[in-house]
Design a protein around this nucleic acid. Sequence first.
DNA 1: TTTCATAGCGTATAAATATGCATTTGCACT
DNA 2: AGTGCAAATGCATATTTATACGCTATGAAA
Lengths: 159, 159
Amino acid sequence: MKNKSKRLVTISQLINTHEIHNQEELLMLLKDKNYTCTQATLSRDLKFLKVAKIAINGKYIYSILVDKKNEKIKDSTSGFVSNGFIGLEFAQKLALIKTVPGYASSLAMVMDMSEPYEFAGTIAGDDTILIIPRDGTTESDIRHRLILIFPELENRIRQ
Amino acid sequence: MKNKSKRLVTISQLINTHEIHNQEELLMLLKDKNYTCTQATLSRDLKFLKVAKIAINGKYIYSILVDKKNEKIKDSTSGFVSNGFIGLEFAQKLALIKTVPGYASSLAMVMDMSEPYEFAGTIAGDDTILIIPRDGTTESDIRHRLILIFPELENRIRQ
DNA sequence: TTTCATAGCGTATAAATATGCATTTGCACT
DNA sequence: AGTGCAAATGCATATTTATACGCTATGAAA
């Protein structure tokens, strides 16, 4: 169960680093990394990750549109930025992230850059970020999305 | 034979203007425009056009990647007092206005000056304004109020 | 005009993907 | 520990998509 978010992170990494042509192939790659699941689960994962299958010179490969940006951000700043993270809390259908004073806007900026569907918008103060979830988005959806953006915070984001 | 290129153009237009969930649906839309072909042909066309099927909001829709980016670029360049306005959205009974980075507070200030009854309050970040509607205020009320404040944005505010 | 070569496409079907349903698992709360 | 819930997942299958194969139409070259 709590394997899911790790698997999602792994999948998005694999997709960014490999040419994956179908879900069977992805299944194998995951098996190599000691994740066992079925094609059905992958289908659901790919849906969640907004992975697209697209033709590139005659072949179909998977690609993550939004998370490609993520990758770039992560490379440079994410590790540093997420230092400011203190905690996540939900109230009135809204998500609130507490940060070290001064860190809120940079954290929010990183979050916004990948334009996650689940976030209708975010507003950052000095030490608090307010995330307004899109209607229909669950607390769990928000958590998963945040883990994708900040994998290193998984333990603290997971419920 | 030379019908193909026309069809391809039509297809890409349809994809940019409709939410198409599968090739059957596209087939129907094409039939409406007097193109007759089979699913097999569409599959080849979509491959050629590098169209991707991607999950948005729980549904799968086709999208042409390059054109999506263009759209985003277009959105953030217009010219008026309401310069920075990018978009309006409702979530969790709140209204969210997206602006060009840096523009949120000036836009919010303009809105606040007329002290609209419908707004219990507004909070501006860097590129997002959160409007908290008074209890009993509907989405439609908010839209009308915003149109009064920014008449030039009517098309983009009206649902 | 005849002959090739090739692009375009339909048919049938293979391959790939999505999903309804049932089951299991983990968690919160007694 | 026991109960109830919701998330996670597998299984089986429906749905969707890709493609092998063969036919036709078109144009180029002889």
